[in-house]
């Protein structure tokens, strides 16, 4: 308790620390938001809750790490991870996801849970259980007497994440495929009647999600560290964000992503770093409770 009060005291004594916490949180939150957006896409369009979301992120990280190990420049990792994970996502769709789309909730949860375990173990066998990271070797910018530090690598990562997010938004708004995806999300049957090949839309959506996650992972490996079994922590955060923001609400997903990043950093500062993820899970509980209370008023049949 004393420690908690002391930690809060530090925040008041050194206001600049608040800025640092928010900055750190927003930078990692941007990557959470990417993974969460992919999840919202798949969830909204195909009604598949992908528990392997975080493992796609980690797989993308390993693609980038592998490239760097073989002498390619690190920044190339992001587009390459995007493309490679697109392909892997497509294969996984054809093998697994296409068979569970029309099934009930538990079938898709079980299938993707199995997928998550498989992917983590395969990565463990291929790359070993060492923690890996890519060091870009860029310097770090310091402000406010060195209290605020912004590694240029992190800055590049966040910029790439924003560019990717912007690209996806424009794509969904203006391209033909984007329209088809949105139409399928609204009413798959009507979309089929109007001549949209929903099977193709599903495959495309899942591959796109996998590719977004892959690119996020390639950014994460440049800034933090990855390990074959770290996927679950990204999956949890993606679920928290999507549950909080709701499906099909892109600005909401981004805001929730950044917010959760910052809140986690505050939690870590005040309660100790061991409780960083507990903050995310607590938030999920609160959001679910809130939603439950909200829904009591308007009861409806569950699909």
């Amino acid at each position: 308790m004393d420690q908690i009060l002391g930690n809060i005291g530090l925040l008041i004594d050194y206001p600049v620390v608040n800025l640092k916490i928010v900055l750190d949180g927003v930078m990692i939150g941007a990557l959470f938001a990417l993974a969460a957006y992919g999840l919202a896409l798949v969830w909204g369009v195909m009604n598949v809750k992908n528990l392997a979301q975080g493992d796609f992120v980690i797989a993308g990280g390993y693609v980038s790490w592998w490239l760097v190990e073989h002498g390619f420049p690190a920044l190339l990792g992001v587009p390459v991870a995007f493309i490679v994970m697109w392909g892997i996502g497509w294969v996984i769709y054809k093998l697994v996801i296409s068979r569970v789309i029309e099934r009930d909730l538990f079938t898709s949860l079980l299938a993707t849970f199995g997928l998550a375990i498989m992917m983590a173990q395969i990565m463990n066998l291929m790359f070993g259980s060492d923690t890996q990271s890519v060091d870009l070797g860029y310097p770090t910018l310091h402000f406010f007497d060195g209290f605020i530090d912004v590694p240029i690598a992190k800055l590049i990562g966040v910029l790439m994440a924003s560019a990717l997010a912007a690209g996806v938004i424009v794509f969904m708004k203006s391209s033909r495929m984007g329209q088809a995806i949105r139409a399928t999300a609204q009413d798959a049957r009507a979309a089929r009647v109007l001549g949209i090949d929903t099977e193709k839309v599903y495959a495309f959506t899942f591959s796109l999600n996998s590719a977004i996650c892959g690119a996020a992972g390639a950014i994460i490996v440049m800034v933090w560290i990855i390990q074959p079994f770290y996927g679950i922590s990204y999956s949890i955060r993606a679920f928290v964000i999507v549950t909080a923001a709701g499906l099909g609400n892109l600005p909401g997903v981004i805001a929730a992503g950044l917010g959760i990043g910052a809140l986690e950093q505050y939690g870590a500062h005040i309660f100790g770093i061991g409780y960083q993820q507990a903050v995310a899970v607590m938030l999920l509980l609160l959001v679910l409770l809130y939603r439950l209370i909200q829904q009591r008023r308007n009861r409806q049949v569950l699909k």
Binding site: I21, W224, S233, H269, I273, G274, Q277
Partner: peptide, 15 residues
Amino acid sequence: EKLPRDLSDMSAILT
């Protein structure tokens, strides 16, 4: 402080 099992960021402690 105690670090979590899936640690990938300890900037809060270092601050």
